[in-house]
Design a protein around this nucleic acid. Sequence first.
RNA 1: CGGGGCGUGGCGCAGCCUGGUAGCGCACCUGACUGGGGGUCAGGAGGCCGCCGGUUCGAAUCCGGCCGCCCCGACCA
Length: 578
Amino acid sequence: MQRMSRLFGRTLRDDPAEATLASHRLLLRAGYVRPLGAGIYSMLPLGWRVQRRLEQIIREEMDAIGGQEVHMPVVQPADLWERSGRFHSVGPELARFEDRWGRDLVLAMTHEEVATDLGKWFASSYRQLPAVIYHFQTKFRDEPRPRGGLLRVREFTMKDAYSFDTDPEALEAAYQNFLTAYTRAFRRCGIEPTVVESDAGDMQGSAAHEFHCLTDAGEDTLVVSASGAYAANQDIAAARKPAFDHGPPRPIQKVATPGQETIQAVAAFLGVPTHQTLKAVFYWTGQQLVFVAIRGDLEVNESKLRRLLDVPEIRLAADQELDAAGLVAGYASPVGVDGVLVVADDSLQGATNLVAGANTPGYHLTNVNFPRDFQADHVGDIAQVRAGDRTLDTDEPLTLRPGIEIGNTFKLGAYYSEKLDARYLAADGQRRPIVMGSYGIGIGRLAAAIVERYHDDAGIIWPVSAAPFDVHVVQLGSGDVAADAERLSQELEAVGLSVLLDDRADRAGVKFNDADLIGVPFRLTVSKRTLNARNVEFKPRTSPDRTSIPRAQAAQAVHQAHAQALAALTPAAMPAAH
RNA sequence: CGGGGCGUGGCGCAGCCUGGUAGCGCACCUGACUGGGGGUCAGGAGGCCGCCGGUUCGAAUCCGGCCGCCCCGACCA
């Protein structure tokens, strides 16, 4: 048992000023973590116990699908990252340094390279495949802006797993196993995950999913259909674009629109709806200026644009870059521009007689028709999905939901295997690249998501599976009371429960408030009162009600309540993995 | 990287404008009373006022530079 009088950590009576999110505030205030620098935290005993519980749940689910736990280094030779191409492609979030010999090293931000290297060494033949390895390891990512306590940090522990298979079909089977294992793991932690399709990004994979905890504290925006059948990160979400009939194409006309520089202003001035206008937005890829044309009622999604152009980075163009290209913000037009890469959203196809800029200050063109009046180098879906839009296939309404990304899965395919020459000998005698998958869960972020999901004004309300202790014994008094609280704690441990014993000399109010703050699922109070009545007071953190249970049966009763709560979190048997 | 805010004891803050013994609440220590939802009284301990430089007889306070932290945005396997 852990005595609170000896616990390394302390609760705070005042909210730390820096914390705005509930999870950040409560984890600091209840003494789970202590910040060391921006996005860098020490885990105190309470926090570390939670982390280890979460790890154990995930470990069990990884083992259940045949994963084998390993431990890969954080410090890695840069050479490996040179070969995968990421040493140069990744950017400053990858921490680089030299050892005493001047050799380049990196602090791992993820472990695809090392995993691939291990796979290459191990799987010389198809007979060794499939294989899955995983580990819990520190990652360092020099994020431009850490935020929200444990939600977005620079150093953190991740469970990352890597699957090695002979071909895409086998990868698909492994991938399905992971989707199942992840869902089970998160449910056991008290979170019903929302699984969405996502952007593979730097991972270079062919398909990717994210597991989200829906909460207002989330940094990501998810597009979810009413039935839940469709769910995607807004970065890749697609939806129907309502069509509007503006009649058969008419000849272009130039009209004076003095001072009308925004879509709203121009549309109102000319008496047309915004969906009858053409919006011009300019981006800079680092190499060239991009003229983006999209229907006036829609917004550009930069992730989609970046993928369509197949460039690593993109940002809004600066005024000087526009000037250099001879473009006039507010009156720019794709009609008659040249020397600029033109990207058209597919919303322009079939949208007739639009109002566009005239490339002359104070003038617009009416009756612009694509592709009659201008050509695009790229045409595709680059529009932001809006709440109320409808799914492509089933015409269901879509909503936007904030979510915390607590896990992700990538089908890497042969990308890293080819870069690092990780090949196996197939049954037919051919050497083929190992087909890989990569699967991550951020442990600290998961803990933070759980707190976001489970708390009230008084503090954290841990699901039994994640709590730092199973039972919080509050001892109100000394002498006989203390002796009985001690005995009770031992009885609880004897039935397999972990105990936090508040043996401090503080008053009842202080102890109860701290118990609520720390959020252990079950509270038992021992006092003169309970001693005389030969009972103890029992209170689940989830309920405001206190009940008396006979002292003699206390340990058994709590054991039972705990087992029940745990069972409620354990998913029913799911389809067995292959 | 842009915008905003803030660095004074473990936490929350005042003092700074108008330079002159560093203060309040909580937490902490000692004692007494109290004893089931953040008690009362008395007495204590604890601070390079983020750092460096300048102005001045004298700087937490004025000036310059730097560093750090938080929030918003950009960004983000």
